[in-house]
């Protein structure tokens, strides 16, 4: 049963991910992205990572896609113009893609059995994650706060229009 659900949702995720790239309309892409994130969240849920899956929905499907849609709305995209792709580029690109695909296939077929599966004893719930953050991983967590502060300063530098007097 679990296998079937897993297969269904991984296929669903892959298909919607393909939809993000392939659809011509930017809005359709954005909505495919939402579906893709929901599919991923379900996969996380199947592994017992409830916290990650909730975060996935909240942050990615919620905040980030909303930002995408806003950008699309503000920029007001025109219909995409058809671009002629030259033949050599098509040949080169498909050669690259097929080589990579063959390598991947070979690697996967050789190594699927080799990769050890780590048994997880604890469920990645909010409680365990926050316990780890405030005990074992306190120092990286503090560095993260410094990092965010640096980013805020950086965004201020980038967003201020050039030539504006300091008020």
């Amino acid at each position: 049963m679990k296998e079937a659900v897993f297969t269904f949702f991984s296929l669903f995720t892959l298909l919607t991910a393909a939809g993000v790239i392939l659809s011509r309309n930017v809005i359709y892409s954005a909505f495919n992205l939402v579906l893709c994130f929901f599919g991923l969240a379900t996969l996380y849920l199947l592994w017992g990572a409830t916290f990650i899956s909730m975060i996935q929905i909240l942050i990615y499907a919620g905040a980030i896609v909303v930002l995408f849609v806003f950008v699309v709305m503000l920029l007001n995209f025109e219909k995409p113009t058809e671009q002629k792709t030259r033949l050599p580029i098509i040949i080169l690109a498909s050669a690259g893609v097929w080589t990579l695909a063959l390598i991947l296939l070979r690697v996967l077929s050789k190594s699927l059995g080799e990769i050890p599966v780590l048994e997880t004893t604890t469920r990645a719930s909010v409680r365990t994650v926050s316990k780890l953050l405030f005990s074992q991983y306190l120092w990286p967590f503090e560095v993260l706060t410094v990092f965010l502060l640096a980013l805020i300063v950086g965004i201020f530098v980038l967003a201020r229009p050039e030539g504006e007097e300091a008020k």
Binding site: W139, V143, L144, L151, G154, V157, L158, P161
Partner: peptide
Amino acid sequence: LLMLFMALELMSLPTYILVGLRKN
């Protein structure tokens, strides 16, 4: 590895911004 990743980001992102300093 965790600290390595955090440190790499703390190093890189301010630099991206410094590169784009001349906005015009």
